[in-house]
Amino acid sequence: MENKKREILNVHRYRVACKEFDSNKKIPKEDIDFLLEVGRLSPSSFGFEPWKFIVIQDDKLKEDLISLTLDCEKQISTSSHLVMMLARKGSDIIYSSDYITYIMKDVKNIPEDEISERREDYRVFQRENFKLLNDKEAMFQWSIKQTYIPLGNMITAAAEIGISSCPIENFHREKLEKLLEDNGILDSSKFGVSCLVTFGYKKDKVYIEKARRPIGEVVEWIK
């Protein structure tokens, strides 16, 4: 058990956002499928999975996408795989939507007599607890926060099997979403772009332990 703990901590100590990958090395299909499955199995608030993962392999689309980012050319152009995290918008994740019904009824197989109760719990959460209803942007931002759970799981799992990664937020969302719509990839009435993440094998092979604040500054115990 102690050996396993040390292994896990070492992965976290040395995992960094990779700025340039070895463009000659490609991730095997079974490994990228593994990372996508890790993302799929990730938890979400209420278990409603308000996300979709788009794997972009088209070189022309990558070039167009690079032009909409700032200082991210190497991360994207040298990567083996580029994954785009999409977040569902309010029309899909409001408590009364067909999507929420589908998740409860067809995915989770919740009995009919329990669906109304669960929907009401979700309505109270949206209306009273987090005050998301009637605010489309707040609903979308809530979905975006959910996508960072599979993102974190995927980049950690990647590091554990020797694959580097780089999450990317530095892009023009409106222009990127238009590009995706023009290419028939995105329905902007249902989804928006949350973030991008590139995967591959680090080019320079140099790993430096992270600098972080001491644990006493990060954690406070209330007894």
Rank of each mutant, 00 (worst) to 15 (best):
F46W: 05
E181T: 15
D59Y: 12
F46P: 00
N170H: 06
T101E: 15
G39A: 14
D31L: 04
G162Y: 11
K178D: 13
S45R: 01
R127S: 14
C18F: 05
S143Q: 00
K52Y: 12
V193L: 10
S143V: 00
E30G: 07
R40L: 11
R6L: 12
H172W: 14
D121W: 01
D31R: 04
K205L: 15
W51I: 03
V83F: 08
D204P: 10
L41Y: 15
Y207A: 14
T78W: 08
L132K: 03
I32W: 04
E137R: 11
F191S: 01
H81D: 13
T78A: 08
F191R: 01
I27D: 00
D121F: 01
I27S: 01
L196G: 05
L70V: 15
N153R: 14
I168E: 07
F34P: 09
L196C: 09
T69L: 09
Y102V: 09
I76N: 02
K74T: 09
K4F: 13
K105F: 05
C166G: 02
K203M: 06
L9T: 11
R40E: 07
I144V: 15
D204W: 11
S23W: 03
E20N: 12
G39W: 03
N183R: 13
Y95K: 10
Q126R: 03
I222K: 15
L70P: 05
Q75C: 05
S77H: 10
D135R: 03
G90C: 07
N134Y: 06
Y201Q: 00
Y207W: 15
R88T: 01
E73D: 05
K131T: 14
E137G: 02
R88W: 04
C195I: 01
Y201R: 00
R15L: 09
D22F: 11
T198Y: 04
S42G: 06
F171H: 12
I103K: 04
N153C: 13
E181H: 11
L133F: 07
K136A: 06
Q126A: 05
G216R: 09
Y99G: 07
R127G: 06
D204G: 11
S189C: 02
K202I: 05
L41D: 11
M154C: 06
I149H: 03
D31Y: 01
V107P: 00
D187Y: 07
A157F: 03
E73V: 02
I100L: 04
C72E: 12
S44R: 00
E177H: 08
L82H: 03
E209G: 14
Y99P: 06
E220D: 04
G184I: 07
F48V: 08
K52V: 06
L65P: 03
P167E: 07
L9Y: 14
G192W: 00
F199D: 01
N24S: 08
G184E: 02
K62L: 12
L70G: 11
M139E: 12
A138F: 05
H12T: 10
K205A: 12
P167C: 05
E117R: 13
E117F: 13
L179T: 06
E209C: 13
D33C: 14
G192K: 01
F48H: 00
K203R: 11
S165M: 02
E120F: 10
E209S: 13
G90R: 04
S164C: 09
K205I: 09
